[in-house]
């Protein structure tokens, strides 16, 4: 799983209300989530994001509510990978469960001008601009397995139970 998309860089503590406001979450029509993704943070995001892009953030990305609509909105908008210093706990599980790749790399200096090549399962992020490689914090094997199946739905459909 290699991601080389264009990047969008934001800061610390991006909460789930800013990823997708609560008023838009009560729906099963997932395409509507992408229309409002990050709208209170960067209203231009939904127009500039493309399939395969990478979102870069600082600390505690996805803090706040348990709404799975947050990673779903990013995935629906085309985001293939979120790279952050670290993630809020429920967002982290939710992203993997819906098959959105995420990588936690600790403090970083990735900027708007960086070009990123990320190897998701190996846990490596290469910044071509600064010629710098980041090693990801290792995920438990069960999460890697879930991500490789494309999410928890497929994982459980196949295994019927957790394999730990």
């Amino acid at each position: 799983m290699i991601c080389k998309g264009d990047i969008h860089v934001y800061g610390d503590n991006i909460d789930t209300d800013r990823i997708i406001p609560g008023k838009y979450t009560k729906t099963l029509d997932l395409s509507t989530l992408a229309d409002h993704v990050l709208e209170d943070l960067d209203p231009s995001f939904k127009d500039k994001v493309k399939e395969g892009d990478i979102l870069i953030a600082g600390k505690n990305f996805g803090c706040g509510s348990s709404r799975e609509q947050a990673p779903l909105a990013l995935k629906q908008a085309g985001i293939a990978l979120v790279i952050a210093e670290d993630f809020a706990r429920i967002f982290y599980r939710n992203a993997i469960n819906i098959g959105l790749a995420i990588i936690e790399i600790g403090p970083h200096t990735i900027s708007e001008n960086s070009r990123i090549e990320a190897h998701v399962l190996e846990g490596k992020v290469y910044d071509k601009l600064l010629d710098k490689t980041y090693d990801a914090v290792k995920m438990p094997q069960v999460m890697i397995d879930i991500l490789q199946e494309g999410g928890l739905v497929n994982y459980l459909k196949k295994h019927r139970d957790y394999n730990i």
Partner: peptide, 19 residues
């Protein structure tokens, strides 16, 4: 607290994985 897919899995299996 968990999200919807973890909840679905818990409804089905009566179990959850965690650290």
């Amino acid at each position: 607290g968990v999200g919807s897919t973890d909840l679905a899995a818990t409804l089905m299996t009566g179990k959850i994985w965690m650290k």
